[in-house]
Amino acid sequence: MNPFTYSRPTDVPAAVQDVATHAEAKFIAGGTNLLDLMKENVMKPHHLVDISRLALNKIEENGKGGLRLGALVTNAATAYHPEVEKRYPLLSKAILAGASPQLRNMATDGGNLLQRTRCYYFYDVATPCNKREPGSGCSAIKGYNRIHAILGASEQCIATHPSDMCIALAALNATVLVTSKRGDRSIPFAEFHRLPGDTPQLDNTLEPDEIITAIDLPEKGFAENHTYLKIRDRASYAFALVSVAAALELEGNTIREARIALGGVAHKPWRNEAAEASLAGKPATKENFQQVAGMIISGAKGYEHNQFKIELAKRAIVRALSQAAKLI
């Protein structure tokens, strides 16, 4: 871990100012991923702006029928918030499928969006990695890539996005609210994270001087028919090999709207809106779910050790949708 200076501003404008005026500055809130990466010399900020005490720690109505999650509400407080449990149980379940109680007590909602990949090579500074050291090469493509991406990867990077919470937020069409010295902006969730392309060092579209202030949830929470299915190598406290956030709006047995977001398969929460739309008007049957799973996975590409994810993801989609529709 390299040396860094530290400041603890008391309001958002001061925080934004702090991060803009210090070289190589980063915000720290929960710290559960940033400190982890700093101890491995993967991230080396020269200044940390501690935002953990800013007044962004409330869950409120957003005036549009949905909830606004303050960026600094902890994951645990979000998952166990009565309104979240009632209106967005998919989000609660996704959060509780991730990490451990201790980490959920520390990690914040804003920070969760900024979690970095678990790719072994990204974490090990002895090996080349384009995400950590652009231009050094991707070790995973010809290496041990069991946990890596099958969708949307590039020749430069096959890392996956590690969050569970974000998979639910993607399915819910959340909006990320950010601010900087240049003013406020809101980013649709689908545009927040990005695919690696030729710049895998960039996980998302947030500017370095921008701060996440809140996450807006739309009114529609799919509380009735939803599932968060997480498949991993142990029963708890492990990252997803594949996860699925499935949400259905049903009229009788007819699907009015379907949302399917995948984790563990791509550099960002993976959605295929065309495939989802194909379910509209169709009955909720296993056959229809298999068909949509095939559409979502159709472009998937496996590597030496993660071929299994292609079939697993398909089956996970079918299982999650079947559970959401209460077929099983």
């Binding site: 678990r118 072994y120 090990d124 090996t127 029963a235 990252f239």
Partner: peptide
Amino acid sequence: SVIDHNFGRFMNHNYAEYHVPVNAD
């Protein structure tokens, strides 16, 4: 403990990726 033979190096060298059972297992 998985070795990447390109590097001759154990790659999952941490408690998050080298799995041992947790209570729920």
